[in-house]
């Protein structure tokens, strides 16, 4: 009996050691290994979309910006209708998520509503991926309030002060005497970063509610009379008109100057509306084959018509020049 007990103790000791050593090996080398694994995935996981896989179908993986996801989905559908051998999967998650995925090499195109930071580009290069930036549409960021809010125009500086938490009451900007409820995005959003860097030029008020996407902000502002939000222009429209319950503010460059609405195409292309940005895609390396066809389709006249139809704006000459320099 005693011998048996000792034997079983021995065996379980061995099992124990085995598991322990496995666990330790897994843990201690985690950081270094993690990087290597993601690098490998970059080369293996990309599937060379240009050359096509064995079955003849080409798979393109696109991920990132919530502001861009509907637009790119529409572009992809139109492209797939013309090129049935190509399959394009478009998912959202936020610009930061797309950029993290292209650094890790798990996708072909990252949608991002902000440029990649230098450190992000370096990280991607360290993994053997050279991200090629393409501007494929222009977006005005609409500042929205509830339909019942009397305020119709705000200056860029006022919007910044409101989101920094310096202006807390609507009465300070010509509205009713009520506390301003801030709605914004989460830090994985390109819109969040763009708005912070070009409008706030400072930190968001910690009282801002961090919503998951553009649609969440639209819903929140529709039901909150004292709310304010910022969304990609495409999300304010339902067909050709502004969504019921919502008001898109006119924005002026400086306080006292007349406000400009982002809803008119001419205000965006002329640069009169102050909060506009190009929408980016980052391709993993110079696009080849079907991937290149898709990018060129987006930039074509037909692609730009779809962009306009989805509530965004076509590229300016400067944007086209930018693309010429980056696409070889």
């Amino acid at each position: 009996m005693e011998v048996k007990a000792r034997k079983s103790l021995f065996v379980c000791g061995v099992v124990l050691l085995l598991i322990l050593s496995l666990a330790l090996a897994g843990c201690s080398s985690a950081p270094g290994q993690g990087e290597k694994v993601t690098g490998d995935a970059g080369e293996g996981g990309q599937q060379d979309p240009g050359k096509g896989s064995r079955s003849g179908a080409v798979m393109i993986q696109i991920k990132g910006s919530d502001s861009e996801v509907n637009l790119v989905q529409k572009l992809a559908e139109e492209f797939m209708a013309e090129n049935p051998q190509v399959q394009i999967a478009v998912t959202g998650g936020g610009s930061g998520v797309g950029i993290a995925a292209i650094i890790d090499g798990t996708i072909d195109i990252a949608n991002s509503s902000r440029p990649m930071k230098n450190e992000e580009i370096e990280k991607a290069r360290a993994n053997g991926i050279d991200p090629v930036p393409v501007r494929f549409a222009v977006d005005g960021i609409a500042v929205i309030v509830n339909e019942k809010n009397p305020v119709g125009t705000l200056s860029v500086e006022e919007i910044g002060a409101i989101y920094r938490g310096e202006i807390k009451n609507w009465s300070a900007v010509g509205g009713a005497n009520a506390k301003i409820n801030l709605f914004g995005r989460q830090s994985n959003s390109g819109t969040y970063v763009f708005f912070m860097e070009s409008v706030l030029k400072g930190d968001y008020s910690p009282e801002m509610r961090n919503m998951g996407g553009n649609a969440d902000i639209v819903e929140a502002v529709k039901s909150d009379v004292t709310g304010i939000g910022y969304v990609a222009i495409g999300y304010t429209k339902e067909g050709d008109s502004i969504r019921p319950g919502l008001k898109v503010l006119n924005v002026s460059q400086e306080k006292g100057k007349p406000g400009v609405t982002p809803v008119e195409l001419s205000n965006i292309t002329s640069g009169a509306y102050p909060i506009t940005r190009p929408l980016y895609q980052f391709v993993a390396g110079q696009p080849q084959g079907a991937l290149r066809d898709f990018v060129l389709f987006e930039l074509s006249e037909k692609g730009q018509e779809i962009v306009l139809g989805q509530g965004f704006y076509p590229l300016s000459d400067a944007d086209r020049e930018f693309n010429k320099n980056s696409l070889k």
């Binding site: 990087e35 930061g96 998520v97 890790d104 994985n188 009282e207 961090n210």
Partner: peptide, 20 residues
């Protein structure tokens, strides 16, 4: 008031942070 919880904080930010 609006609040953020520990688990929500991780879920919101884990997707976008560069590893390491």
């Amino acid at each position: 008031d609006s609040v953020r919880t520990l688990s929500a904080n991780i879920a919101i930010e884990m997707g976008e942070v560069p590893m390491g």
